[in-house]
Design a protein around this nucleic acid. Structure first.
Lengths: 223, 223, 223, 223
DNA sequence: TCTTAAACGAGACGGTACGTCTAGTCTTCTA
DNA sequence: TAGAAGACTAGACGTACCGTCTCGTTTAAGA
């Protein structure tokens, strides 16, 4: 990956140094094309043309289209995963889940993530990078919040941590990828309420409560 | 889609009738290649060659590779979604989830589903067909089980149905697609136990209990 | 080679037949580009574009650029090598040599032959085809004329046939390729007169005598 | 051209002087690659790599690959063109022609000359340099020998000098380039005997007489 | 000794063309 | 009419060189 390779080149730069301008142009062009037309539109030739760059330069720094897509996604998505640990557990969780939902719903990152998830099915390197650089850090935040709450006695000791994390995050990706249900604004709060019923359902953080309350048993199948 | 197209050809077939042998050969070849090497290996030319069939014949009956992959998946996967409604709720749910997990873990259908999910991100028709013909029927079964339980008073009236369904099914797809956690044999039981804590955690149905109990709070990050 | 391949396909043509229109368009485009800018300009991509044809189609029928150049040369150059055997020997020889000189001097075939000779140095198949399909038939005509004359007693029995043939033909190619001397109109007559001095130097056939008489001992180094 | 450029740099050499080691390494690498695989193998990058030299250094001193090939040819080929003018005419001519034949037949210079001749068709500078630095000096020697003989009355006054020179030299290049006949050891003597029949055919100089006498009318087409 | 300017190695870069591959379409013959 | 065979267009693939460029380093003449 470009960034990794660049960082490993410690000192002793022999030859013409790598152009940062070029690197950014490639990442930007890739992201643009991915958003506009998905993987099908983001051909290496198209990216090279749009970035005003030679194809060979791209291949020199990225081994595959998937890896490039990955890098362009991370370059675009400045999504902070830091969480205010002074917040009550429910609010902290909802805040993080809402950031994810909003990112996927209201920015091009949703489309990018869909393409990346698709690319990950064909390219093990992409899958691994996606897990390590995207999924794992976010799960780590959630895991820490839950573990702290268990330690404080707010959650039962027998809590199934990994499964709970899946039940909080997976529905968001599931809806993004399959579209069987919308990524509604109230989804984060409902996910937390359903997964951790012992907690009082508090202020839903940044969500606008009451908007499109698809909730409760009345909700039926879409379509 | 092949099956649909065939069924609409009601009567009065003039000319040479469509060869069922050819249709099955195409579906089989597509499924084989998909399993062996994923979408990348399942080229139209490869499928035609393996099936001993002309490319034009394939294009005549299937509009795209994704659609063909979809058909070949359904042709392969004889996955009953019927559920014994006399079973206790938890057992019924676990049985269904376990069938899904086992299908993805122990048969080529897991690989096929990964490819289909990827294809769905690029082709709206595939996404829609996947939702309608695969996801929706399975969710309908689960929804019916939950609604019955609510009606019987086993579950609270305020149960968030759609979110609960996501929390039962989504983790399975999430783990299949991103591989951050294994599709363990105890996963269905844990999903149900965590999502519906009010229920007694009963015999886990067909799962072998106690095998690799990654469960409870002790479980930490993989890798 | 295209023509060869086409002719071997005797009967039983299954599938779509090869398009003659396409074949000719490719040969014409190749010849045009070769004449305009030589081998450097006659790229496969350029030929395909100019012919309105896909690159794959070209590669299907011609194994290399050299082979294609060769075919396009033969397609362009309808140069009859038949000779009127009732003519006196000197006239017959001069007629043939003059046809070659004129072809190289006054038509694009001269430029084409230069490119082909160059290509032959890199591609043994081109060299062989050039020898068999171009050089050999022409030498065969000259050899027959000389052998007949020997049989009639017009030429000495000890005549060194192959060397004489080289001395008649080689200077023309030498001047074409290296340009150290022009391909003058009187060159054929002078070649014959010098190589076969026993013959009376008769009417020089189609040449215009007296034009640019670079001849005799007075001629000195060019430039 | 390298040597020319170096010699024109008269005095006042400020800065680091040009490295002779580098110049020779480049010429050697170019010649090696040309001999091994022709122009196709002698890429600028390959030459630079083999010579342990930067591409920019090559481009600094040679304008094109053809020019470099030319220089490397002259650097390799230490072919004396001096002739013992005390020898009889036929012997002197044969000696010179035999040197050329032997050079082309028994040393890598034959392969180099083929590549150069090919390069000359595409690059006018190469063609001109080849003519001036290689062909012209050799023809000048032959011309001087013939002119002397005419002055001494050994050859007729009406001798067509330029055509005779072509008939002596051209067949050698013709056979080298097109391979329709071998560059036999007896070729020089036969060329002289056929082109200048008035002379007594003397000792063939350095040739081994009697070896493979492909000569006289019995010789027929090869292959 | 120090300065200075060119030579040089390394290698990034925009290009162009390569030869291959697959997607789809079209054309002809056969069953 | 279905289907096989296969010619064809379109265009992306990943590679190889091209010739140019920007660096940092080296080398010897001149100050």
């Amino acid at each position: 990956m470009g960034e990794t390779a660049a960082s490993t080149t410690t000192g002793a730069t022999r030859g013409r140094p790598r152009s940062e301008r070029v690197r950014l142009a490639i990442l930007a062009a890739a992201a643009d094309l991915l958003i506009e037309g998905g993987m099908a539109a983001a051909t290496m030739e198209g990216i090279a043309a749009r970035a005003g760059v030679s194809k060979a330069t791209i291949y020199k720094w990225w081994p595959s289209r998937g890896q490039l897509a990955l890098d362009s996604f991370f370059n675009r998505t400045k999504d902070s995963i830091a969480v205010d640990r002074s917040l009550p557990l429910a609010a902290a969780l909802i805040t993080q889940l809402d950031a994810l939902c909003t990112l996927f719903r209201d920015t091009p990152s949703g489309a990018l993530m869909r393409e990346l998830a698709a690319a990950a099915q064909a390219d093990p390197d992409v899958r691994e990078a996606l897990e390590e650089r995207w999924l794992r850090p976010r799960r780590a935040v959630g895991r820490r919040l839950l573990a702290d709450a268990v330690a404080r006695g707010e959650l039962p000791v027998r809590l199934d941590l990994e499964v709970t994390l899946d039940q909080l995050y997976a529905p968001i990706y599931h809806r993004l990828l399959f579209g069987h249900q919308p990524l509604g604004r109230d989804l984060p709060a409902r996910l937390v309420a359903q997964a951790l019923p012992g907690l009082a359902a508090p202020e839903p953080g940044p969500t606008t409560p009451g908007s499109s309350p698809e909730s409760s048993i009345a909700a039926t199948e879409r379509g």
